[in-house]
């Protein structure tokens, strides 16, 4: 068992101690490689155990009833532990959102690419700068210079399509995956 390595024929028949030496080196490197690979593989379950668990992933969809939300109103629902802004936009807001020159935006995105139905804007309400929750959901809150949302932490302004217009945030408020189950029922996630 000790001498049964495939390395034997690599060096036909030099001096005996030398071949023993190289056979030992080969065995040392091969064993170290196998052992190291095993150790790395054994670490994966530890790392993976910190990823979201099966029950956490199963809860990752939320249904929202749009019926009670009047035009011009917003609600905040929780999805994956984060706030999701659902806004029933007024005709003026839709017009403002659509009238923007897309090329001039920090993250160019047309309003029609951010909504499925123009009157319903659904997006994750977490500032893309450092994760604060922007203001603008409640009537009394500041809506920023573009009538959308305003992040009080570092002064990012979002427009009525949730796009970044001013301030340090690098990107628009992200739109989650959602589907309209009926005219008034949306499933987020």
């Amino acid at each position: 068992m000790a001498s049964s390595t495939t390395h034997d024929h690599a060096q036909p028949s030099p001096a005996a101690p030398e071949s023993g030496e190289s056979r030992r080196d080969f065995l040392l490197y091969a064993t170290s490689a196998v052992g190291a690979a095993g150790t790395v593989l054994a670490l994966w379950p530890f790392v993976h155990s910190m990823n979201p668990a099966a029950d956490t992933l199963a809860l990752s969809s939320t249904e929202v009833d749009l019926g009670p939300i009047a035009e011009g109103q917003s609600i905040t629902v929780t999805w994956r532990g984060k706030p999701v802004f659902v806004r029933h936009r007024t005709a003026d807001e839709i017009k403002a959102a659509q009238g923007v020159d897309v090329k001039a935006l920090r993250e160019p995105q047309a309003d029609k690419d951010r909504v499925k139905k123009p009157e319903w804007l659904i997006m994750v309400g977490v500032c893309t700068h450092l994760g604060c929750i922007p203001l603008g959901q409640k009537p009394a809150e500041p809506k920023g210079e573009f009538g959308g949302w305003f992040c009080p932490c570092h002064g990012s302004h979002y427009d009525t399509s949730g796009r970044i217009r001013k301030g340090p945030a690098p990107a628009n408020l992200p739109v989650p995956e959602y589907t309209f189950l009926s005219d008034t029922l949306v499933r987020i996630g």
């Binding site: 040392l28 091969a30 196998v34």
Partner: peptide, 13 residues
């Protein structure tokens, strides 16, 4: 496999 290799190496050393 690993243990067999370790045993062979142990014998050699």
């Amino acid at each position: 496999v690993l243990t067999a290799m370790l045993y062979a190496l142990k014998r050699k050393i």
